[in-house]
Design a protein around this nucleic acid. Sequence first.
DNA 1: TGTTTTAGTTCCAAATAATGGAATTGATTT
DNA 2: AAATCAATTCCATTATTTGGAACTAAAACA
Lengths: 262, 262
Amino acid sequence: MVVHKKQIQTGTLGKALALLDLIATSREPLRFIDLLHLSGQPRGTLHRQLSHLLEEGLICLNDETGTYELGIRLLNWAALTWSRSSLRQVAEPFLKSIHDRTNETVHLAVLRGERVVYLDKVESRQAVRMHSQIGNTSPVYCTGVGKAMLSVLEDKTLEELAKRIEFKRYTEHTLANASALLLEVNDIRVQGYAEDREEHEVGIRCVAAPIISAKGQLQGGISVTAPVFRLQVGQLEQWQLWVKETAQAISAQLATRMGPYA
Amino acid sequence: MVVHKKQIQTGTLGKALALLDLIATSREPLRFIDLLHLSGQPRGTLHRQLSHLLEEGLICLNDETGTYELGIRLLNWAALTWSRSSLRQVAEPFLKSIHDRTNETVHLAVLRGERVVYLDKVESRQAVRMHSQIGNTSPVYCTGVGKAMLSVLEDKTLEELAKRIEFKRYTEHTLANASALLLEVNDIRVQGYAEDREEHEVGIRCVAAPIISAKGQLQGGISVTAPVFRLQVGQLEQWQLWVKETAQAISAQLATRMGPYA
DNA sequence: TGTTTTAGTTCCAAATAATGGAATTGATTT
DNA sequence: AAATCAATTCCATTATTTGGAACTAAAACA
């Protein structure tokens, strides 16, 4: 959320979490020997690091296969993170309200590095299943909320972030490079809302707006998403207004009632 | 899940996570000064530890209130933990099946220390909202799944665990001490299933059974929960069978197709 | 069955990071 | 402007981590 003034060396903790991330992001189940190659750490070091992660419940060892999985303690922390998130708490009724009016999927998301993390979702029939979205991430440059959030960042921050992005084409409309993104963000700044015109998935469009704090700091964003075939003429124009209004209402509310646990 | 052979000193990582847990489990938002008192660490040490957690995205600092909140990175890890859990993947269709037959809430849970952590849930109308259960915990001694899981542990492990529990009366039926619990677990071992007779919440009953690995190691448990007013005569007796059968079917399936990501 | 290979664990002197008290800076109140 | 309180920085001391090598366990091979 906040951009770092200076890079801090996180020492032992950083190394342990890098290892955890390796396990978390691998698409294959990993054994000791795999981690040995992937991490590039010496045997002794890796062994102790894994012992510590294991002991702390951040990972667990599958007895049958000898592979490491993510631990249940992470789930527990996440449940607390979610339920206490002040942004989420404040936004909840607003998300419901906009969903009632649009009857389409509404997302609440925050920015984390070059990716968007979904914090909440209100969906048509089905309510949220965890696997659907919460805690999952998407690239910032081809999602409505992503681009909306970028529009709040300062130029310098934005440019640095854009430079770090690895652009990948998901559809023919996906923005293909940093300059195209910066150009589009400029438009978004003027309009106050962002659109996703089938940039991430063919047949899916959305409108989104950023949420800011009293001090103007980026807090997150909301979006309404719909399949193209269900869109009426002028519908997105209507939703634009609602999304902008709602994001501003959430921002205003955040300024009043801050802090979690309230 | 697995009981430790020996206690390992987790050093720096352990200290950092203890601090994270302090923030996670506090019912009040905490500022630096609060953490200074709570943690008992010297100023310099605490400051560096917080900087590291902050830098790693495990916590974030609320600019307006100066209080620390849990970070989004935890949510992201949890989403991966959940979606890849081999137990959850294997259990999913079985949970649906038993829900179709009972039309009541079905839970999948695992044991973590003296508490039960919910891994999945299939509910009547509403599908899962994260806040409903996933990642949340309950005491082991007054839940159906909790007692069912205890029944798989070895005597020594069980007794040590029971000794560590702080018993709290939730209803007049709550088991009040370790010996009552051990006695009940003995019955469960014979029957192969556990009951919760309004022990956690008045008006709520459930039946549960444990899931084990090929080697007989405890993997988790499932339960069917219903409000007393909706229960027909002989209904729990029917569900007992289903829950036992289903838990065994999951155990069998686990033995075949192990490992996450499959 | 014994041998080889591979995977995982333990050890310990050297290198690195964490510690914590004190001094400093910054913000808020009187 | 002074006083109070909160947060941050500094650095010599202390504790932990590091990593190569030796060791053990288990599986694959002969």
